[in-house]
Design a protein around this nucleic acid. Structure first.
Lengths: 262, 262
DNA sequence: GAGTGGTCTAGACCACTGT
DNA sequence: CAGTGGTCTAGACCACTCC
């Protein structure tokens, strides 16, 4: 016995894939669809929830169910690290022109709203381990939110950790009022004579937690990409650990690997 | 008026996060929970579906609802490309010892079941574009499934495209019976004098389609990572385009970027 | 066969959107 | 206010697991 809600979902899914229903189209009301398929409204809602979970339709309370439009992607490129390093020793005027975020998104500073919060914490287990330092070592925690001026939700959640004693020689680095810092973290580290040699990035994907869905304004039926970035300096020390949460439906990550010649 | 199913989900979520309920624990039956919270069974199922969607619990028909265990991750490392290139010119005996998949997963060949299917197709738009070739150019499509001997579902879905005329000089490359080919694609290309110079990988994440969920045996409440890999040879030609679908809950990707010294 | 989750109904009432 | 989706109920019946 085939399940009614799956059959209905299959039917509607087919109509979307074949283009009978186009992005932006409104579906008939749930009551009408229920009548059309000869099933109850909750059964129909079951079918629509399935499609919503697959990211095919967008449920809008009081307005209707719409075929979802494909999202425009922001590309995040690992070439950004070398790009940022090259700029780290440039004069401030040059660095101020464009930051890494603008480099990624192609937007100008005016289009972006920037928010930063600093605090010093004692390293818990999970952070002491990657830094290779004892639990309790003071770390500077920096929390960033960046959003487009025209949108209400930020497009990423970033938390970065630096070792306080490594950067204490420059008190400006402990002051959140100096953000956004022209030239980014690599320039900040440069002011205390740290040169970044290697960046490791690890990522996985999963559905958002309710908090993430709220913070990033994610509809159901999307994923988040979790990225953990570890920066090593030329002496092999871990100098920065950063956690980034990205909306899966609006982000594409690009990594280029160059190989040695034969 | 707070929503009943959200309140119930919040309560159970809290008990999982605080460790009152531990990974592997079975929750009380839905009927018992409904009585406990003074709500109907469907309302309780709504709450549990929410938690299942967040990947916190595992619904098992006829057995119960269980707190989900964190998954063991397979790491996929971009160092694999250089590693594979280094081996491409080694004698067959060396290459046969370990393939890239075993390199990634840490498993031996005995633990893996390998499946490959070849066919020649005429390049459609989406493939002609990345190769920079006219629509209709003959391409070799290679579909791979790899699974652990002990599991029933493959842990990735791979489809690779090569330009037929680029590799036709070695007829073995058109024969799926030669798979698994010791040394992988880079060795295959080496037999027709192609040297890979650069690999680009692009990623996004989203919920699985029903087909993907079935093929990879993914529970609801997980994501897939979609990878598109493009290989360039030393003459700047695109020599391979590969699409990989990975289960988000079992995969961690690792990318290392080395920076030039100051 | 007992116990569990899965599907489905028919209808009530609430919340949101737009006129 | 009309029309839409969201929540909830009480109960029936089915499908799966395990003893």
């Amino acid at each position: 016995m085939p399940k009614a809600y799956e059959e209905i979902a299959d039917d509607i899914r087919r109509s979307i894939r074949e283009g009978t229903r186009k992005p932006g189209d409104r579906l008939p009301s749930e009551a009408d669809l229920a009548r059309h398929y000869g099933k109850s409204v909750p059964t129909l809602q079951n079918a629509l929830r399935l499609l919503s979970g697959e990211g095919l339709i967008d449920k809008q309370h009081g307005r209707g169910n719409f075929v979802r439009r494909p999202r425009t992607l922001a590309v995040r490129d690992n070439g950004r690290h070398q790009w940022e390093k090259n700029r780290a020793r440039e004069p401030e005027a040059t660095r101020a022109e464009t930051g890494a975020t603008e480099h990624d998104t192609g937007l100008r500073l005016d289009d972006l709203v920037f928010y930063a919060k600093y605090r010093v914490i004692d390293a818990p287990d999970e952070l002491a381990a990657p830094f290779g330092l004892p639990v309790g070592t003071p770390l500077l925690e920096r929390t960033y939110r960046t959003r487009r001026t025209t949108e209400s939700a930020p497009f990423n959640l970033v938390t970065s950790y630096l070792v306080r004693d490594m950067i204490a020689a420059n008190p400006d680095l402990l002051d959140e009022a100096k953000e956004p810092w022209p030239g980014g973290t690599q320039n900040q580290l440069h002011t205390v004579d740290i040169e970044v040699d290697r960046v490791e990035e690890r990522f996985t994907a999963r559905p958002p937690t309710p908090e993430e869905a709220r913070a990033l304004d994610l509809p159901t039926g999307t994923s988040v990409i979790l990225l953990r970035k570890t920066s090593y300096d030329i002496r092999g020390r871990v100098v920065d650990v950063t956690f980034v949460t990205l909306p899966g439906d609006r982000t594409e990550l690009l990594f280029t690997t160059s190989l040695e010649r034969w």
